[in-house]
């Protein structure tokens, strides 16, 4: 058995993929982090204080997890959904009644979205109350506020897609608020809806925003957000003495 393990881990194929040995010593534990694209945003060593559960409650990581799970379930939903006034609603009904695990898939995406909004808001409160926005992290706070607004935008644009009474009137109420803003308000509303009221043009635009533009924005800004956490010396918990 150990012979087999050794043969595999010393084969050229294995070694072409993992460029470090078994991580049971400081060097290989460092190399795990620096030579792996999924780990490389982490530092090689972390301060014990920043790992305290009652400091972060893991909220930032949870937001990333929920975003990834929403991306996954969202892509699966795209296989069953056409953003047209004629087909959107019947697609959802068919997904729920005829597709195996279709209802579960939609439930995961719906509740995941609500959870993500909640987790992102709580993450912001955590960062504020621990004073983690203070210099040198000012701009990362600004990026975080942008991510909160994008999260709300992602959830709001997704709300219209089932094209039922709930979505239609929620978006009608929501976008009418934008219309109250002087000068820019009516323009913003016109760009968002593509017409005087919620219809096919609005559905097309909300769909494009929901599956492409906003997720790309979140992915990009999240990358910068996490990168800056590293560049600014890790979590602010390290500063406390």
């Amino acid at each position: 058995m150990s012979n087999l393990v050794q043969t595999i881990t010393q084969s050229r194929i294995w070694r072409s993929f993992f460029r470090h040995g078994w991580p049971d010593n400081p060097l290989d534990r460092s190399l795990v982090m620096t030579s792996n694209i999924f780990f490389h945003l982490h530092p090689v060593k972390v301060n014990r204080k920043s790992l305290r559960a009652t400091y972060t409650f893991g909220l930032g990581v949870m937001a990333v997890i929920l975003f990834l799970e929403l991306t996954l379930t969202g892509m699966l939903l795209m296989f069953y959904y056409a953003p047209t006034v004629e087909r959107a609603y019947t697609n959802i009904v068919a997904l729920q009644t005829q597709t195996p695990y279709g209802q579960l898939l939609r439930n995961l995406h719906r509740w995941g979205a609500h959870l993500m909004v909640l987790v992102v808001v709580l993450h912001m409160a955590r960062v504020f109350y621990t004073g983690a926005y203070k210099p040198p992290r000012e701009f990362n706070w600004v990026l975080g506020v942008g991510l909160l607004l994008l999260t709300l935008g992602a959830s709001f644009t997704g709300y219209l897609l089932p094209w039922d009474q709930l979505s239609f009137w929620a978006i009608t109420v929501g976008t009418s608020v934008a219309g109250y803003a002087p000068v820019l308000g009516s323009t913003a509303k016109a760009y968002l809806l593509g017409g005087p009221e919620v219809g096919q043009e609005a559905l097309t635009r909300f769909y494009a925003l929901h599956v492409m533009l906003i997720p790309l924005g979140i992915a990009l800004i999240t990358s910068v957000h996490i990168w800056r956490v590293r560049k600014d010396g890790g979590l602010a918990a390290n500063d406390d003495r």
Binding site: P23, P26, R29, V32, V44, K45, V46, R48, K49
Partner: peptide
């Protein structure tokens, strides 16, 4: 006061 990030 630090630990290796991997595997913790």
């Amino acid at each position: 006061n630090t630990v290796f990030a991997f595997p913790v």
